[in-house]
Computed example of a mutant assay.
Amino acid sequence: MPDKDAGTPRVFLYRHGQTEWSQTGQYTGISEIELTPHGVKQVVASGKMLVGEGKLIDPTKLARVFVSPRNRAEHTFQLAFSDADKQALTDANKVERTERLAEWGYGLYEGLLTKEIRALRKDHGLDTDRAWDIWTDGCEDGESPQDVTARIDSLIEEIRAIHQGNMHGENPCDVALIAHGHTLRAFTKRWLGYPMEFPLSMMLEPGAVGVLSYQHHSIDEPAFLVGYGFPLEE
């Protein structure tokens, strides 16, 4: 964080590690697909580098850790944080498993590839003038963009209440979200005040961490950190 923004609360977006379906591009919502061995290595590597006292995600500075209820997110939390840090956070009632961070409900599209979804929708007489876009069209028998917006906005409201009054580091109040690719990108859009259909292209690799915060220590100026400068070692 630049010096002028030091102490401003942050939200860390921690995507779960690779699964067989994330590797193949299959849409994974409610299905409990476990991390691959490579996915485990991804999370262990990012956790070792980024999670711990004095590191980017410092457990002593966390006010809350919100975890998706899917196994792959829970496994990521277990791998990324040390046993001592997990115990301390749990004892302080700072860890919450919440459906608000579950992956987008894909409905009929669960387990399918994008090309298969578009073919299915064509068979259903949909998208006659343009290709399917989840951010605009949602999922048949699954969640609409409005459904996802409602649950994410509820979580953002709770996080902003935690941050309010702590914009200059008055109390440690960083927040970590451990969840999924679509959900975390949807969260970013809503954090910045954009509707789901806003064409904001984002990438977040399995096991990777993104950072959201605020400009000018202002709760009314949510922002994302395009790049993060790490402090020099003494």
Results as ranks from 00 to 15, higher is better:
D5F: 12
T8S: 13
P9D: 05
V11G: 02
F12D: 02
H16W: 10
G17M: 06
T28F: 00
T28N: 07
I33L: 12
E34L: 07
K41S: 15
K41W: 11
S46A: 15
K48S: 11
L50D: 04
V51I: 15
V51E: 10
V51A: 11
D58A: 11
P59W: 04
A63P: 00
A63L: 03
A63F: 01
V65F: 07
E74A: 09
H75R: 12
A80N: 13
K86G: 06
Q87G: 04
T90C: 00
D91V: 04
A92S: 14
N93R: 07
K94W: 12
E96F: 13
L101I: 12
L101N: 09
E103G: 05
W104N: 01
L108N: 15
L108F: 13
Y109F: 15
E110G: 12
E110A: 07
G111N: 02
T114H: 12
R118W: 02
R118F: 01
K122Q: 13
K122D: 10
K122A: 15
K122F: 05
H124S: 06
D127I: 01
D133C: 08
D137H: 10
G138I: 09
S144M: 13
S144Q: 13
S144W: 06
S154Y: 04
E157S: 15
E158C: 03
E158F: 03
R160A: 05
Q164R: 10
G165Y: 10
M167L: 13
E170S: 03
C173W: 00
C173A: 13
V175R: 04
L177C: 06
I178K: 05
A179V: 09
A179Q: 08
H180D: 12
T183R: 09
T183Y: 12
L184R: 05
L192D: 14
F198R: 05
P199E: 00
P199V: 07
L200P: 08
L204I: 14
P206A: 09
V211W: 00
S213Q: 11
Y214M: 06
Q215W: 10
H217G: 02
S218Y: 06
V226K: 09
G227T: 15
Y228N: 04
Y228H: 08
E234L: 06
